[in-house]
Design a binder for these strands. Structure first.
Lengths: 235, 235
DNA sequence: CGAAGTCTTGAATATTATCAATAGGGGTGG
DNA sequence: CCACCCCTATTGATAATATTCAAGACTTCG
């Protein structure tokens, strides 16, 4: 993609944005072609290295980011060092907040990626002509809220096995719409454990048990494969 | 308040809205006096009985509600009957969604109260002249998201005792800014347990333990009192 | 090949859940 | 006003589940 910065895509947009695969989820969907080219040329696009922190817990949000490629973990740290992963973010998801508030989590990159930065002031300005932008921010917030609520139910009411299965299915669905194929976990066991509210050892034992009882056919490092059996993977 | 429907408050607004204590948090804050009177006179205000369900999980949201008085529990039901309370809502909080989406929880009243209903269409119409309304919806969503994330951390990383203390402190802070005074819990033990991801028995035992070790000086039914000792209640 | 990290397994412990019984509290009818 | 009942909450004893601490295996990468 890097060498296509000046090419013209079939939608009439030049530069990065013409090739962007997440524009339909982003705040920039509603911009005019000229405005899009402005975004393209100002290099709102930022490459992100593995391990990089895009937004840091405690700092005041000044920008809203949209993930173009890559995976991020959203982390909250307690005073005594306990760590909770409150979510994972994928292409099309947002990082940061549209409000100028103190961030409640850090967003850390799990692999090299690309994000698009929209300063609050830019969004405010563009919202005057494109009122759909605010609608998008509202509905995106509602989606994130629902995901957080799903997570609450998982942590509040599900057993270790249920947590692991539901997590794996959610990742498999993102990675590959065909559940019967092998897929790759972009995060470590510790990240998953901290997301599921379990210790890494418990997660590991649970994965082993799932493989032994046939719900998973492969558990080798970060590669996972569900059994074909529809009954089991719908659980 | 019921017999003041036609009186004129010092802010120049007549009817219910002139006396409303949560307008500063509501979408109606930005309306003109004439529009406010319209809200007042159309009886957007709805009384709610104890036990009443205002929004139901699975139904499509058509209205956004603002709580004027009362307390609500937000409940999610799993297929097998397990129940997770994903939050409690108080005056100034919102119920329902600004988007026309399938609701992911039910909101059930814990005591007689009053809510204000804003149909989506009404909000859309008013947003054209009052763009602050959408900003309010955005920032309200961000606040709810942060509360959900706090909840995730509580369920993912806190012990039973920590969960109970944090919960009691949050209620005490809403009820009474002076933590050293007795306060009332509007919800049952079962509701609290389902919120904290614990069984009712574990909650009960934990409360007893907190009273015995002096962190609480009173635990009698729904009345609770923290010890004066600042060290302990900041935990 | 070796070293450092990550992941898995093992054994013992701690915490919470479960099942069952008892106690408390509020309202109703005698 | 008291006795009774129903519902909610607490307590007790035991079992299930996840954690802890420790050791071993597997990967990755220099």
């Amino acid at each position: 993609m890097t060498d296509n910065a000046t090419c013209k895509a079939k939608n009439g947009l030049s530069g990065f944005c013409g090739l962007c695969s997440v524009r339909k989820n982003s705040v920039c969907e509603f911009l005019d072609p000229e405005e899009m080219n402005e975004v393209s040329s100002t290099m709102a696009h930022l490459p992100v290295k593995e391990g990089e922190t895009v937004v840091a817990e405690g700092e005041v949000s000044e920008n809203l980011y949209v993930i173009v490629s890559g995976t991020f973990r959203l982390v909250r740290l307690m005073d005594d060092g306990r760590r909770q992963v409150i979510g994972f973010a994928f292409p099309g998801d947002y990082l940061g907040s549209p409000d100028k508030i103190e961030m409640s989590y850090s967003a850390e990159s799990l692999e090299p990626g690309l994000i698009c930065r929209f300063p609050h002031g830019y969004l405010t300005e563009k919202s005057e002509r494109h009122t759909e932008i605010k609608d998008r921010l509202i509905s995106n917030g509602q989606m994130e809220l629902r995901k957080a609520q799903d997570h609450i139910v998982l942590l509040g009411k599900a057993t270790a096995e249920e947590r692991v299965i539901e997590f794996l299915k959610s990742i498999a669905n993102r990675a590959n719409h065909n559940l019967s194929e092998e897929f790759y976990l972009p995060m470590s066991r510790q990240d998953i454990a901290d997301y599921l509210g379990l210790r890494m050892e418990t997660l590991s034992r649970t994965l082993t048990a799932l493989r032994k009882n046939g719900i998973l056919t492969a558990v080798s490092g970060r590669l996972i494969k569900f059994a074909q059996n529809e009954e089991k993977i719908t659980a």
